[in-house]
């Protein structure tokens, strides 16, 4: 499959008063054209930081990117000038955030905000009137299964429920043609029944428009239902990458296994012990594997050396000395 996005050895550091927090520690991942990819990890593991660095929306005064490349359609996003990155944001990559009420501006109507996206996309010529824009926006609102788009078009974000607001965010992300959608836990702030609706909607829209999707989530269940391939992230490292089916059939990395054990099952069977310990300090991390202090299978070598990503089976990568 042709690669649309290729992240190579990306490192992202935050500067704090104690020194640099090495939040993203050399990750490699790629997204093919039309592929749906999941990035799964617990809070604070660096998933959102990675995604924000793709769009370069991190605060440049606090963030230092010492190494790495983010190749999007052949050019490196990290080395683009302002105009170039702006073009990528306008035309190619869009993002849905976790908190829909924070993503929408409370002083403009929903319609205004959607029209702004259309206006700045630069994908329409001068003959494209305001009326055409509005009808495009209304059609897009109807596409996300809102039954009365005209009323929603003229309402303010506070007049809508959480699920509706998230639908509007999806409209804004998809109203103009895009190649890649980054969805950052779009269902987390919502109830399960609404979350289920939003996920089904996202999947059908992405498939219909032949886009690529990066789904960030902390829930293995959500990833299993939505994506083709999963990256499991722990403390700034990708610890395992595999096709969804393979990952759930045969999880390899001790962290992935621990995480799966922790999920309470609908079929019963009690609650597991949890994973021993807490996530490590990012400012002075261990020189070896970052999971080493919590790992049940830790060996001596794990404390000294970083485990490289090894191919366990075809298309199944794992960063653990157990499989080296």
């Amino acid at each position: 499959m042709e690669r649309l996005l290729d992240i190579r050895n990306l490192k992202v550091w935050y500067s704090t008063y104690r020194g640099f927090a090495k939040v993203v520690d050399g990750i490699n991942m790629h997204v093919g054209k039309g592929e749906k990819v999941g990035l799964v990890g617990e809070s604070g593991c660096g998933k959102t930081t990675t995604m924000k660095s793709i769009l370069r929306v991190l605060d440049s005064r606090k963030v230092h990117i010492p190494e790495g490349e983010i190749i999007f359609k052949g050019s490196d996003i990290l080395r683009m000038n302002y105009n170039e990155i702006q073009q990528v944001r306008r035309r190619s990559i869009s993002m849905i955030s976790q908190e829909p009420s924070a993503a929408l501006n409370p002083v403009f109507t929903v319609g205004d905000q959607i029209m702004e996206v259309i206006r700045h996309s630069g994908q329409f010529d001068k003959n494209f009137s305001k009326k055409d824009m509005k009808s495009l926006a209304i059609k897009a609102i109807r596409d996300v299964l809102i039954s009365d788009p005209e009323r929603i078009f003229d309402s303010y974000p506070h007049q809508l429920s959480g699920g509706m607001k998230q639908r509007i965010c999806i409209v804004m992300a998809l109203v103009t043609p895009r190649e890649l959608l980054i969805a950052d836990e779009p269902g987390t702030a919502l109830d399960v029944t609404i979350q289920d609706q939003i996920h089904r909607l996202l999947r059908s829209l992405v498939e219909e428009k032949h886009m690529s999707l990066i789904m960030i989530t902390h829930s293995l269940g959500v990833a299993r239902e939505l994506v083709d391939r999963i990256y499991v992230m722990y403390a700034g490292n990708i610890v395992e990458a595999a096709k969804t089916k393979d990952l759930f059939k045969n999880p390899l990395h001790p962290y992935t296994r621990g995480l799966m054990d922790c999920v309470p099952r609908l079929s019963g069977g009690g609650v597991s012990e949890g994973i021993y310990g807490y996530i490590p300090d990012y400012i002075n991390p261990t020189p070896g594997c970052r999971f080493y202090p919590r790992c049940p299978d830790a060996k001596e070598v794990c404390s000294r050396q970083k485990p490289p990503a090894t191919v366990a089976t075809e298309n199944h990568l794992v960063a653990c000395f157990k499989y080296n």
Partner: peptide
């Protein structure tokens, strides 16, 4: 049934327990 069918699960075994015909619609 709607609630149960909306839960994201991680194994086939659990999938089998979810009510099949119910699809989540509407909002509270």
């Amino acid at each position: 049934q709607m609630l149960l069918s909306s839960i994201p699960v991680i194994s086939e075994e659990e999938e089998a327990l979810k009510p099949k015909k119910v699809v989540s619609t509407g909002e509270i």
